[in-house]
């Protein structure tokens, strides 16, 4: 028999401190900020007059993706001022997600609760502040008492709207990012452990070639995680844009 002992979930998330209070998650978060800054810094240093290529082309295509793919689709032309915020949100989340498949890092920083909680609370604060800034106290009215509902139904609608707008939104933003990345990490660990255990099967040598199967699955899942990393960053950003746009202009 092979001995496959899957570690408890909290053990595959444990990293020792590189120096006090600074562990791998913090390292990845700092690296994400530094790499993002470097990309846009180097891109900004290039000559803007000639046709963009290399890193400037890359940075400009990210900017245009945020502008055309996210801002224009959800907030319209008025929301273009939010591009830097959404751009930094997208780049930071993507750069925190993608270490999940980079060898030796092998851990998405967003698979720990700290980053998603912080980011979604930030988004929560930002969209509420935006709502009050654009509509004043009318924001409460437009978000809790949606127009076009019979008066008697407000008893039912208002608590639901309150919960869904002010409680479920940050919660679901957090859980979506966190759980997707953690699930991907656990999947990779599972198939990595499985193929390792099969390759090292003592007792039954016939099992050793079978270990190729979970290895293929591991490779496939690694490619899939690239997609997930991008998609989660995109979804977090576009939901942020939708929330901010909804707070700024209630009619949308």
């Amino acid at each position: 028999m092979i001995a496959l002992e899957f570690p408890p979930i909290n053990e595959i998330l444990r990293w020792k401190d590189l120096f006090p209070t600074f562990n791998k998650i913090a390292l990845i978060a700092v690296l994400a900020a530094v790499i993002g800054t470097l990309i846009f810094l180097l891109a900004g240093n290039k000559d803007a007059k000639v046709a963009p290529k290399g890193i400037r082309n890359f940075a400009e295509s990210i900017v245009e993706f945020i502008e055309n793919g996210i801002v224009m689709q959800t907030m319209g032309r008025d929301g273009l001022g939010w591009t830097p915020f959404l751009l930094s949100l997208f780049s930071f989340i993507y750069l925190c997600n993608v270490p999940g498949i980079i060898p030796f890092l092998q851990m998405p920083a967003t698979a720990r609760m700290a980053l998603p909680v912080f980011l979604s609370l930030l988004v929560w604060v930002v969209f509420i502040v935006t709502g009050f800034k654009h509509q004043g106290l009318g924001y409460i009215k437009s978000s809790l008492f949606p127009p076009g509902v019979p008066k008697a139904l407000y008893i039912l609608v208002t608590p639901i709207e309150f919960i869904s707008t002010f409680l479920v939104r940050p919660f679901s933003l957090t859980v979506r990012l966190f759980a997707n990345m953690l699930a991907g990490h656990i999947l990779l660990v599972t198939f990595g452990l499985l193929s390792e255990a099969l390759f090292q099967a003592k007792g039954n040598p016939a099992l050793i070639p079978v270990g190729v199967l979970p290895l293929f699955m591991l490779i496939f899942l690694t490619g899939f995680e690239v997609l997930v990393a991008f998609l989660q960053a995109y979804i977090f950003t576009i939901l942020t844009a939708v929330y901010i746009g909804g707070a700024a202009h209630p009619e949308h």
């Binding site: 209070t21 600074f22 562990n23 998650i25 978060a29 900020a33 530094v34 930094s88 920083a109 980053l115």
Partner: peptide
Amino acid sequence: KELAWGAGSFIVFA
């Protein structure tokens, strides 16, 4: 600690 580092680096980046 992770919250503090992550928040700090994101805020600086943003």
